[in-house]
Structures are given as structure tokens and as C-alpha cells.
Amino acid sequence: MSLTNSPVIETQNLILRGPEKVDIEPTIAFLQNEERSIFFGALLNRGDAWRWFALNIGHWHLHGFGYFTIVTKGKEIAGLCGVWFPEGWPEPELGWVVFENFEGKSVAFEAAKAVRSWAYSNLGFTTITSNIVPENKRSIALAKRLNATYEKEYHNDNMGHCYMYRHPSAEDMKTN
């Protein structure tokens, strides 16, 4: 059972749903794996990782959006994708991560397209960004694959030096 008010979004290969108790351990394992989560904000202390999981639940309740859990149609928990806008962020961000063994399978691409479409059609967003640390070449490539364009560099209080990529506007999405 979802711990939030999130909808369920189904794509061809994925189910995007709100966080559930069953997601705690896979999410903590991801956050504590510094190599996998370095660009997301590695949290090597288990308690800090648990608090991030709870933070995402609270984010859903405060904003009406947050990170969905990505689940394959085969019922495997594959990652996180959603809209993030905590204190200190310049504007709402479309973010994604995939868990170990799910990279290179278009999971993040399929999830990000679905979440972006949902944000435009259900949240009334007209545009959205993705904030990516310069060393995260895979996420930069994915942002470009999603037709997001580099907009500027800025300092993120949590992540440090970041690139901001702007996704096509909701209006542009309708005409393309």
C-alpha cells in the first residue's frame, strides 16, 4: 500500500507508484552504495538513508509530487523517478536513478518521459528542469535524449556545482 497520495502511472514496461514499505530496503541499499548514488547524494549512514526515504514521503504530502518507485512489469524494484522541489531548489526538477542491474535498459528514459508527461498534464507545469552534477555523464546523455537543453551552471546547496537542463515546454511537447 502506498504511503502517499501518488497516482500509479503505467508505461509499456514499467509501473510508477508511490513509495511503499517494501521499497525501504532497496532504497536504503542504493543510497548507501556510494558508487551507485554519488550523483544523487550518497548517504552512507543507514539512519540518514532511512530519513531520505521518509523525506520523500513527506515531500509527496507537502507538494503533491515526489519520487515514484519504478517497478518493472516483472515486479522488480528498478529505481526512482519523479519531481523534486525541496527547500533551496531553484524550481521543480525531474530526477531519476536506476538501481543496480537496471542501467542501460531504457528504464530511466521510459520513466522520465512518463513522469514529465504527468507533471505537464496533471500538475499544470509548463516547463521543468533536470539538475545534474557535471561528472554525471550518463544523466547528461539521458537529459539530451529527452530533448532537454543545457541552460546554465549554478550552485546547488546540497549537490554543489550543477548544470541545469531545461526540458521542452508543455506546449512544445504538444506540437512535436
Rank of each mutant, 00 (worst) to 15 (best):
L3W: 08
S6D: 03
T11K: 02
Q12N: 09
N13S: 15
L14Y: 09
L14C: 13
L16D: 04
L16C: 06
G18R: 06
P19I: 03
E20A: 13
E20F: 02
K21H: 12
D23R: 05
R36D: 15
S37Y: 05
F39S: 03
N45H: 12
N45K: 13
G47Y: 04
D48S: 11
A49F: 01
A49I: 02
R51G: 04
R51T: 07
W52K: 15
A54F: 10
L55I: 14
N56T: 14
H59Q: 07
L62A: 13
G64R: 08
F65I: 12
F65P: 00
G66E: 11
Y67P: 01
T69N: 03
I70L: 04
V71W: 10
V71D: 04
V71P: 01
K73T: 05
K75W: 13
G79L: 00
C81P: 00
E91F: 14
L94C: 00
W96A: 01
F99Q: 03
F102R: 08
F102N: 04
F109D: 09
E110Y: 09
A111R: 00
A114K: 09
R116K: 13
S117Q: 14
W118F: 15
Y120I: 08
L123H: 09
F125W: 15
F125N: 10
T126R: 14
T127I: 11
T129V: 14
I132C: 05
I132P: 00
P134T: 05
P134W: 10
R138V: 01
R138Y: 08
A143G: 03
L146C: 08
K152L: 09
M159S: 07
H161N: 11
H161L: 14
Y165T: 01
P168I: 08
P168N: 14
A170L: 10
K174P: 07
